[in-house]
Design a protein around this nucleic acid. Sequence first.
DNA 1: GATGAATGAGCGTTCATTCAT
DNA 2: GATGAATGAACGCTCATTCAT
Lengths: 208, 208, 208, 208
Amino acid sequence: MTEAARRTQIVAAAIETVAELGYARASFAKIADRAGLSSTSRISYHFAGKDDLLRACVAEITGVATEFMRPRIDAAAGYAAKLRAYIESNLDLLVERPAHLRALVEILRNVRDAEDGLGEAALASRTRLFAEHLRAGQEAGEFGAFDPEVLALAITGAIDAFVGASHDSASHDGTAPDDANGGIDLRRAGTELADAFERAVLANGVRR
Amino acid sequence: MTEAARRTQIVAAAIETVAELGYARASFAKIADRAGLSSTSRISYHFAGKDDLLRACVAEITGVATEFMRPRIDAAAGYAAKLRAYIESNLDLLVERPAHLRALVEILRNVRDAEDGLGEAALASRTRLFAEHLRAGQEAGEFGAFDPEVLALAITGAIDAFVGASHDSASHDGTAPDDANGGIDLRRAGTELADAFERAVLANGVRR
Amino acid sequence: MTEAARRTQIVAAAIETVAELGYARASFAKIADRAGLSSTSRISYHFAGKDDLLRACVAEITGVATEFMRPRIDAAAGYAAKLRAYIESNLDLLVERPAHLRALVEILRNVRDAEDGLGEAALASRTRLFAEHLRAGQEAGEFGAFDPEVLALAITGAIDAFVGASHDSASHDGTAPDDANGGIDLRRAGTELADAFERAVLANGVRR
Amino acid sequence: MTEAARRTQIVAAAIETVAELGYARASFAKIADRAGLSSTSRISYHFAGKDDLLRACVAEITGVATEFMRPRIDAAAGYAAKLRAYIESNLDLLVERPAHLRALVEILRNVRDAEDGLGEAALASRTRLFAEHLRAGQEAGEFGAFDPEVLALAITGAIDAFVGASHDSASHDGTAPDDANGGIDLRRAGTELADAFERAVLANGVRR
DNA sequence: GATGAATGAGCGTTCATTCAT
DNA sequence: GATGAATGAACGCTCATTCAT
């Protein structure tokens, strides 16, 4: 097997392992097992360390997420529509790639003392971007009066809670159909969530 | 020193340690250090295992949280007011006892395979109770139409995001005043958050 | 077994192991074996790391060496006599405690990047002290003209060569009597060595 | 690139690596890096094992040293002059080829359980040859009375100490000029060292 | 009952070497 | 013949737990 293919495979195994066992229990040994490697040394050969591997995972996941969500967000016209597109596509992605999002949340929540791109700093920067969007929407008159920082954190936190909740149920019941998760229909939940936050941010408090 | 006092002291040390270092790095050794114990065996003597210690931590934290939040929630009249009281008092508590809430979130997020009272099951049950409240508010006509499960998860997730964000900033800047955290005034954030979710759930879409 | 006794025993085992196998092959596993420990974790408990253990070894060896050599050096009157006392007592010590000196040389030669008290810095500081003595002897008119730095390095290097040579022979022939080593009678060698360096440093080039 | 050239290149890289990092840290990986090889397997392909590679290094270094020192020793007339030529040319060589001599000393000091040509056995055989020369000088009446074994070991040990000391200083201060090392002018040190040992071995105790 | 000493599994990492191609 | 991929043992170290006293 070629070197690049192994790298890819290890990243995939790491994502699945972190998603399933959580950050703390995702050891090289478990990842190597899943990747079909007889020893953890092969992982150490391909990646400079655990941080390096996790960074590669984050890059892979971010790439997939961007590819999935970006078009839908770009296609939406207006700040509110883009907000809805973000929330809905994020929850749709959770249906398509649950392990990816679970792993992402686990990694970002747990890594400490990492430079950019990993750990809480990455979470904070996502929130910051979100706040920018909200602020811009306010200036455009589309959104009402609220603290953009607070709502940005609320929205991203709410989304991550769905990721975490899906984690929970999936681990207890592997038989759930792809589009059901923890008893929640995630696609519907995305719409509901978008509705709710729309009510929270819209200038005119329109009821649907 | 009485046995109960020792237990209390160990629990306090464990809470601080988990809050500061995170779940994964909070080993018995670190906790014993902070509690001024010379050996981890004293922890093992008082607690049946790590799970048992963490359960005691959760109980302690839950007790403190209940004592702090319960009166304010009870004093509020109406479903919406109670929701606001919950959110605001929770963020006020984050100001008063940041370590407690950080530890709680860390524990509930990371413990796996635990029976009731720990881990994701505990998170889910908190969400379930919340959903009950929302459903009751709908039936009382105070709240509008939305999926209570979805909003329950969104609200608790949003609150936990503030806990996590406060963790982040606190660890990078020990000089912040007690009532400021990560550049966010948590008391104001509580009001903002309550405002936002009120707009999201109220039947008549009232604007403040 | 008490904690302090274990520490002492581990240090003793480490000294023997380093002396026998050399720095590079003296792993915690080998040391634990010799100390009668079932696992390396006990060593890690007593010492902060390999450096810490080696530092303790150096301290122990230095203590033994000082206790042995100091009185003889102090008893000698005059710079030349002290030089002789140093050389002779050092080689006598090599007879009494071969493992100690072998281990010391191994450690000082091989440790890199260590703070004071370990590694090449320690070797250099010993040479510096030696050079001071030689310089003082010159100023007192007892020694002739030569570069003290050069002779200090030459003398300490020569002594260490005997330590190294004794290592060699001992490892190949464990049956040698205590006062024979590598075919060399170390006590006689000490006298010979002192004679030779005396001829090299004395002002008047006296022949014995 | 021809096989012989590859071998030569690997040997050169190994010598530099051992000289810089010391025996224990000179792994195939580091050597391959320095040689510009993508895999350590190419080293294993050209050499039967680490011993084989080190033996080739020793052979290369010995060849260089012989080529450099032999003419000067041969050109010297008399046992004392040859001794001086040996010492001085050896320290001159340390100026010209510091890495070579450092690597040689590292290898000979640290390799264990090797057959002839490596390890302490090689060191001992060098000392034996030296002792032969001293003994012959005594029989010729040029040298005085002393134990040839002892002085042979002392002289070689002293020289090696300079090699070691140069290693030390060089690694801490890369700015030193080529002919200065650790604050010591090695060429002058060679003369001083030869002077000192001349005083130690000459029959008539001549002062310069 | 309480504690200092010990345990063994597991961690991420480096190592020289082997093997199929 | 030459090489990229893989191997498994060993490294120092941390962990929660157990046990004799």
